[in-house]
Simulated assay, not measured.
Amino acid sequence: MSFKTILSYFNFTREQRAGIFFLFGIIIALQLVYFFVDFSVPIKEDPEKQKWLSLQYEMDSFKSHDKNKEQKIYLFNPNFITDYKGYKLGMSVAEIDRLLEFRKTNQFVNSADEFQKVTKISDSLLNVISPLFKFPDWVNNKKEKKQFEKFPSKAFAKNEKIIQKDINQATKEDLIKIYGIGEAISLRILKQKEVLGGFVSMDQMSDVWGLSPEVIENLNSHFKISSLPEFKKIDVNNASLKELSQFYYFRYALAKEIITYRSMNGNFKNVEDLTKIKGFPVEKAKTIALYLDFN
């Protein structure tokens, strides 16, 4: 293709050249407008939104302040650790279950070492959580008792006659005289007696929370059941669900089972019939029988 042939393509009339220049002018003008003109739409500030944003800012500042604030540490009795509490402390499910199974036997751990023996937690975890343990006063005073017992004459102790008093006639002052019992535990024993209507066996001392085997032994040496207290027995064959569930040894679930069993099998003749019911505390049957009327 020759140069003349190529040049022939650029031969325009006056009107065509004017149109081409006009088109170039429009393109250049649009480019200038695009680069130099701000097409963004102004955002209207909502006063309510601004208030919420400022409030949120204040809340965030409070949260950050609380995080930096030193948290208060509360001591606790490890005998009553729940599943959630144990999880927060770093205990495994198996370790928590061992403690709960041990507590079902109505026993207590009285030191960090006993806690580790029962739960089998690691030494490292014990070192972290044991400073948070808080045991009852009688546990902390146990060592003082052992030191004190070295001084009295054993011969004198053997010859000393202890006059046993009826536990149902004991006052708060009488109970406090027993080593290991303070004002709180003495009131707890009296409250238990009030709930039951009176104690019928010294074995019921094990039902009072906070009494160690040593303290119960001291109670048994100073108190006894001279005679059964006077109280209204529960007519187990006619009592309503509400009346049965209010009895200390039954609670609602067992009371419901008793009502169901009674409606299906007839009246109970003795406490042995009650022991056939699922969930009945068989080990306390003799004690429970003294509170019931089977007529």
Rank of each mutant, 00 (worst) to 15 (best):
V200F: 01
K85Y: 01
N106T: 13
G279F: 00
K4P: 00
M202V: 13
V236G: 01
N265Y: 12
I43H: 14
E173M: 03
L290T: 07
L30D: 05
V139W: 01
I162H: 09
Q71K: 14
N237H: 12
S40Y: 15
F223W: 02
E230P: 05
P42G: 08
K88S: 14
D113W: 04
L99M: 10
K143G: 02
Y252E: 11
N265T: 11
L30P: 05
Y248G: 08
K269R: 12
K232F: 08
N141R: 15
N79I: 03
F115R: 02
E194R: 02
I26M: 11
E230I: 01
A170S: 13
K44D: 04
T171A: 06
A157P: 01
D273Q: 12
R262E: 02
T105G: 03
D166T: 08
L89N: 07
S221E: 02
L228M: 09
V118C: 01
P131R: 05
I6R: 11
T260S: 09
E149S: 15
L30F: 15
N295Q: 10
S54W: 03
E160I: 07
S201T: 13
A239I: 10
Q116T: 14
S263C: 00
K72L: 12
M264P: 00
Q71P: 07
K165R: 09
G180C: 04
Q16S: 09
D123G: 13
E230R: 00
D137A: 15
I129E: 04
K72R: 11
S124Q: 13
K191W: 01
L126V: 12
I163V: 13
L30N: 06
I216G: 03
R251L: 05
I259L: 09
V208D: 05
L100R: 14
E257C: 00
K4N: 10
N267K: 15
Q50E: 14
I258M: 10
K256Q: 14
I129D: 08
K146E: 15
V33I: 12
T171Y: 04
Y57H: 03
G210K: 03
N218E: 07
I20A: 04
N238Y: 11
S40G: 06
D97V: 13
N237P: 08
V139G: 05
Y34L: 04
K224V: 06
K117W: 02
